[in-house]
Amino acid sequence: MKSDGLRLGTWLLLGPALLWLLLLIVLPHVDMLLVSLRQRTGFGQYQTSTVHYLAFFTEPLYWRTFMRTAVMSILATILTLVIAFPVAWYIAKMVRGRVRSLLFMACLVPFWVSELVRTYGWMILLRETGVVSGFLQWTGLASGSVEMLYNDVAVMVGLVYASMLFMVVPLVTTLDSLDDCLIEAAYDLGGNGWSVLREIVIPFAMPGIVSGCIVVFMLSLGNYLTPVLLGGKGSMWFTEQIFTQFIVRFNWEQGAAFGVLLLVLSSLIVWLGLKLTRQSFTEVMR
């Protein structure tokens, strides 16, 4: 009786979460998969087909756009990691109390405004008639105006900036739990800065690094505004392609196929990354 009650209670508690999962995550994806597998044959007429998937592999533009997006996202992830690690180290190990919460705040501040405003902020800074260019001319470092917007570097800056927090938080959490004694012990046993970092700190922080990297990679891959607004005239982002297919071309079938492909391919990349770093997903998410 009691165990029955307990089980019912568990189900009731889990219910909303499961329902949410089903309604908002599983069903839309199933629907997207179904839409992606049909082809328009006339006004309002469709037949089952895989042409939209074939189009991805046969039209170089599409898979090149995806590759570009993936490579840029990986690069953004690595850059974010490289920049965030010292920051996280500083927050977790070097400062205490108020300074620490202040620094955390500083990482959080960009998220108080919307992504659009944040991106416009970068545009104001980087554009030809913008703040940085003006400053460079004022100091005499540049003779004419300098355009720093509309290129891949600007996109990278925007992506890294937008991802910072999602890397810093898991890193700080893991580094926080790293006992200072471990580092001292490693030094005491003959380690130097580099070997301590490589053999003690990084292996210890690996779960944080991997979960941060997964989040940042997925966020970059799925980012839309940053690459579209900061990117140059030749730059294409895969999500932009999906948006275009859905909204501009009314080609939901192609857009859905791209959506499914994005999901599958990005999962594949994450899986490969986990394999390469010999991490298991369950361990990282612990």
Partner: peptide, 14 residues
């Protein structure tokens, strides 16, 4: 010289 720490400080990842 080497040191045995108060909480031993064995490396958990090794």
């Amino acid at each position: 010289l080497n040191m045995v720490f108060q909480h031993l400080a064995l490396f958990p990842m090794m």
